[in-house]
């Protein structure tokens, strides 16, 4: 790779951004936002990850092939988590609606 030497200030700036985001995520956790607490915490974590990957790990100067590898990795991670959750979240057995067919074949209503 052609070596890109970054300035010390860029690293320090990224570090300070990460620190501010850490303080923000801790602060927000003490405010009741309902379901949005999780969303905000994960959004901040993703932003922090992108900062580390882009600047500390030099991905902005990486080759296109490396970038494709990384994107593919995160795509598979997304598939892993998304498909696991859709599976687990939809595992109830559908009940047939009441009043369809004769009374003897109607499944008992779920508790």
């Amino acid at each position: 790779m052609s070596v890109h030497v970054e300035s010390v200030w860029m690293y320090v700036l990224v570090f300070l951004c990460l620190m501010v985001l850490t303080a923000t995520t801790v602060g927000v956790a003490f405010v009741d936002l309902g379901a949005f607490n999780t969303l905000v915490a994960l959004t901040i974590a993703v932003i922090k990850m992108l900062l580390v990957v882009t600047f500390f790990m030099h991905v902005r100067h990486s080759t296109a092939l490396t970038k494709v590898f990384i994107a593919a990795g995160f795509l598979w991670l997304l598939l892993l988590i998304a498909f696991t959750l859709t599976d687990v979240g939809t595992r109830s057995i559908p009940q047939q609606p009441e009043g369809w067919g004769s009374a003897t074949t109607v499944a008992p209503a779920p508790k």
Binding site: A29, D32, L33, L42, M49, V52
Partner: peptide, 26 residues
């Protein structure tokens, strides 16, 4: 080694909110 160390940092960046913060501390 830097790449590895930053990766370990990223794992913690997710572990910290997931274990300590999610669900709120209020």
């Amino acid at each position: 080694t830097g790449l590895y160390w930053h990766f370990v940092d990223i794992v913690w960046i997710f572990l910290f909110p997931l274990l300590y913060l999610i669900g709120g501390r209020y």
